[in-house]
Write a protein that binds this DNA or RNA. Structure first.
Lengths: 211, 211
DNA sequence: TTTAACTAACTGACCAATGAGTCATATACT
DNA sequence: AGTATATGACTCATTGGTCAGTTAGTTAAA
């Protein structure tokens, strides 16, 4: 039994990469069990260190969740915003591109797990809810609102409430993701790209100013 | 101190009304704390009996959640279905009425808490997820799908994927509810009725066959 | 180039709190 | 008297978080 090679150390120092490894592990664990039922010990095991090791890098379990929001979702919101802002001169086209980008995000079950968890713990961690609202939702929402308003100003879109229009863009895609990923609902016959097209077809026809 | 009146019994038998009282209490408690953080003891206290008393009527904590789904949400889905079926000869009008009914449901924070909780525990209680999907979501969804298909068959709506259209009806309303109730997002300037109107204006214009 | 002293990274074993579920017993009703 | 209904006090598994002690890597004196 006793392996002669006494070379392998019991553990290695990897202070640089630990935070990311812990977040990777936490994402998988939280997605599977939800925030409350997920055990820090399991996160640690998946990240290949001890539970106490996790607490070297994060002050608490909810700090891990905060880290997850920052790393996983906030960049996506910034990206959506960039796509929207880059297309202010072609609102209809930009709308489609935003829909496609958001669909790609929502198709990623793991990324979608973060908003689901935020939603479920929002009441108990008001600061997490606030952070998420300000840095994710309001970012994405306001970008689209600006896009719609630009379209209306240009006369491309007919006058409408931009907040409603924005929810009509994000809402259906988001609930489709929740329904299929977490309730195991039937995704339907369409491919993601076809869904984007079917969706934006209806939405744009509803928005566009008939000549 | 010693009240002479020895009339008041320490508790009363109320086997008939207990289950509903427990569900009332559970709805409030689950809404506030979420399923995991909610304590059965608190539910019991709010229902004015002991924790052990709760277990006389429900086998487990998750049985309470199941009871909540049955009592709170399944009837709503049936109602939505009825509204849709009653309006098969006027698809556009029925769509608006369904949107209004769903908006009313979603405006009720307490009722909306049930789907939020189902979503958060779906992975750990697959039977709850399945029950919810089959008895709530698929009910509502299929009713609207039928309505859209009827509209397309009549030539009132232009051809489209009815699943997408149905998600465009429910999605924006649902996410608006989540956003305002649980993330404390800005509900915007419109009243619920105005939101329904703005929403269905765009949706119907997107769906209606231009003469 | 050794090697000893030093520090940062890490672990195992632990604690304290928590909360679901149980049960022996008591009380209200019939 | 008998039974359905209710309770308080309990068990017991779970788990977030801590800490004393250990090891990997680093620095610099010898």
């Amino acid at each position: 039994m006793g392996q002669s090679a006494r070379e392998e150390p019991k553990w290695r120092r990897r202070a640089e990469s630990r935070p990311d490894e812990i977040l990777d592990a936490a994402l998988v664990t939280f997605e599977k069990d939800g925030f409350d039922a997920a055990r820090v010990e399991d996160v640690a095991k998946k990240a290949k260190l001890s539970k106490a090791g996790v607490y070297l890098y994060f002050d608490s379990k909810d700090a891990i969740l905060r880290g997850l929001i920052e790393r996983e979702v906030a960049p996506v919101a910034r990206n959506l915003r960039a796509v929207a802002e880059a297309g202010m001169d072609d609102p209809a086209g930009a709308l489609q591109r935003v829909a496609a980008a958001f669909t790609a995000l929502v198709n990623d079950k793991r990324k979608l797990a973060v908003p689901r968890i935020v939603l479920s713990v929002a009441a108990r961690y008001p600061d997490i809810a606030q952070y998420y609202r300000e840095n994710v939702l309001e970012q994405g929402l306001s970008a689209i609102v600006a896009l719609i308003e630009a379209g209306v100003a240009k006369g491309v879109f007919r006058p409408c409430d931009p907040g409603i229009a924005a929810r009509m863009l994000f809402g259906p895609i988001f609930v489709h993701g929740l329904y299929t990923h977490f309730l195991h609902g039937d995704p339907g016959p369409l491919s993601p790209a076809e869904r984007v097209k079917a969706h934006t077809d209806i939405l744009l026809k509803g928005l566009l100013a008939s000549r």
